[in-house]
Design a binder for these strands. Structure first.
Length: 545
RNA sequence: GCGCCUGUAGCUCAGCUGGAUAGAGCAAUGGGCUUCGAACCCAGAGGCCGCGCGUUCAAAUCGCGCCAGGCGCGCCA
């Protein structure tokens, strides 16, 4: 069944065609139909008339025309259309509203999904932490965000590849090896210092303890050992966090396969390279960057950017329709040059989205926790999971906009009280389960619920709840366009709120059998949407508390 | 100095791409358990949407300029 909202938008488009020509002029082709902000404004609202209004044709007049044209479409689900201060407010038939529940119950797997991304391939790169140390909470936020986005896009019909770019080459890896070697020698009585710009974190001491002996014929032993061990523990942490990747790409492989040289040749062919001051430059200013960038240094070695462009070239040649990069805030200066590179290689810029996930500041109550990666003083994702649990951590990371500088209060996340939204959701879920168990004990079956007379759901709390359920597909659709994952968390909290309120005011299992069945059907529908939303956000909830 | 992000209720934040009287949660105040779990619900209170100018029928939302906070700015990675 096609969504009511979609059908309204289509009908409105047709209605526009019947307007007097002068009113059609400014029509953008876009028709917004959104859930109404207030009950008195009906179920859905459109501002189309306001958009089309002209100096001598006020919105109310246009709205009148549109309403007239719309009525000729004979929309069977519509009760009435009201025009109010230029808005068109649509009121659905009560029956239509309630039938939504049956739709959910008969197609629990697909309700909310859509064909927006049908036939489209997305490459989603995220985390991509260097294998030089444990994952930080910044990576945690990126991981939680990326995984949820991947799930939502998949639900919206996209074919999503989650990819991790493994930065296992370059100077940093040499430094890592030297740092580990120093720690190893320190453990064996020498006072070798850790290089000044090396890695001073305690984790390298732990790693050095694991080394039993150093093979003499392997000059790069420490580098290899460190990269392997750290990568492994990164994967372990991610797995525990519920995040998995479909593909790992190694920077080293790029060098070995000559990908970087091939990329340089491509850029050369496109006329985007030039020599100056003994170096090879990429003319990124032609594509909106504020200055040109060096790719090959004076000494013949590559900058960090060169293999990264090669990686993005590899993303492009694999034929993705959409490329999404999720980066930390320390990379925001990097965005223009990356976009420039992609454009220079001939990929349309509007098909690459670079999302910068902003910084998270940790608090313990009032106390702000200072962190410095360089000195090795930070709280790792692993420590965070140990302290508050993976699910609470994920929820806190996801329920704010990516661009917002997040305050994460460890105390709050652990608190088992009303201040903690995670428990609010868990409680709603547990209540849903208990209701169903109780109903089963009282002899109500799920099959009976499917036949329930849904028109009995007349309470205002029930209307609000049904309307919220009906908004679910719209939320999924919007997120797949805006990539704003937090909207699903907002939606879920609102759903839980409406449910708690309804539960408080009305008994589900009551003396009237028909009403009980209708309400149980609503509970089941809630359970479907609730579980789906939780699964998309990658958050699990307990069955009891 | 330049760039990116942020500034909305005491606190943490939404605000569906420019719409109707700016919304939640928490904290504080008052109220609600003999019935499906009160980790819940209900009510009132709380706002120059950082400041100014502009665009528009309409601005928290768009543009420009300030102010404040965070982060970044290498032939480092």
């Amino acid at each position: 069944m096609k969504e009511v909202r979609e059908r309204l938008a289509e009908a409105l488009k047709k209605a526009v065609d019947r307007l007097p020509a002068e009113l059609r002029e400014g029509f953008s082709g876009q028709v917004a139909v959104v859930p109404s902000a207030k009950k008195e404004f009906g179920d859905f609202t459109s501002n189309l008339a306001l958009k089309l209004a002209r100096k001598n044709h006020p919105a109310s007049e246009v709205a009148g025309f549109l309403k007239q044209a719309l009525l000729e479409e004979h929309l069977d689900f519509l009760d009435r259309v009201e025009e109010k201060s230029g808005f068109l407010n649509f009121f659905l038939k009560k029956q239509t509203r309630a039938e939504l529940i049956r739709t959910i119950l008969t197609s629990p797997e697909t309700f909310g999904s859509c064909s927006l991304g049908a036939g489209k391939k997305v490459l989603l790169e995220f985390v991509s932490a260097n294998p030089t140390g444990p994952l930080t909470i910044a990576h945690g936020r990126q991981a939680a965000f990326g995984e949820a986005l991947a799930r939502i896009l998949t639900f919206a019909g996209y074919q999503v590849t989650r990819e991790y770019y493994h930065n296992d080459a370059g100077r940093q890896i040499r430094l890592l090896g030297q740092s580990l070697k120093a720690r190893y020698e320190q453990l064996h009585g020498k006072d070798t210092p850790v290089p000044e710009d090396g890695y001073h974190g305690h984790y390298l001491i732990d790693l050095a303890r694991k080394i039993k002996s150093v093979p003499e014929d392997q000059p790069d032993f420490f580098e290899k050992f460190a990269v392997e061990e750290i990568s492994r523990s990164i994967r372990e942490d991610l797995a525990r966090f519920g995040v998995t990747f479909d593909s790992y790409i190694s920077e080293q492989t790029f060098h070995q396969q000559g990908e970087v040289q091939a990329t340089l040749r491509d850029l050369e062919k496109a006329g985007c390279l030039y020599q100056a001051e003994g170096a090879t430059w990429f003319r990124s200013t032609s594509f909106g960057d504020d200055k040109d960038r060096v790719l090959v240094k004076g000494d013949g070695s590559l900058t960090y950017l060169a293999p990264d462009i090669a990686y993005h070239r590899y993303k492009i040649v694999r034929g993705y329709d959409l490329i999404i990069d999720i980066l930390g805030p320390d990379h925001h200066g990097y965005v223009p040059r990356l976009k420039a590179a992609v454009a220079a290689l001939g990929f349309p810029q509007e098909k690459i989205h670079i999302i910068i996930v902003q910084l998270t500041t940790l608090f313990r109550g009032q106390e702000k926790l200072r962190m410095s990666t360089r000195a090795g003083e930070f709280i790792s994702l692993r420590q965070l999971m140990d302290e508050v649990g993976p699910d609470a951590a994920k929820f806190f990371f996801i329920f704010r906009r990516a661009e917002s500088h997040l305050d994460f209060d460890l105390k709050l996340a652990k608190k088992q009280s009303l201040e903690n939204p995670v428990y609010y959701l868990q409680y709603a879920h547990v209540r849903l389960l208990h209701l169903q168990q109780f109903a089963a004990q009282q002899g109500f079956s799920q099959q009976e619920c499917l036949q329930a007379d849904l028109s009995l759901l007349q309470e205002k709390e029930e209307e609000a709840l049904i309307k919220q359920l009906g908004d679910f597909p719209g939320v999924i659709e919007r997120i797949s366009q805006t990539l704003e994952v937090h909207q699903l968390a907002e939606y879920l909290l609102a759903l839980a709120r409406f449910f708690h309120s309804w539960y408080q005011h009305h008994r589900v299992v009551n003396q009237q059998r028909a009403l009980t069945l209708a309400r149980l059907a609503l509970v089941q529908a809630l359970q479907v949407v609730f579980s789906r939303a939780m699964q998309l956000l990658n958050i699990s909830v307990p069955d009891r508390m």
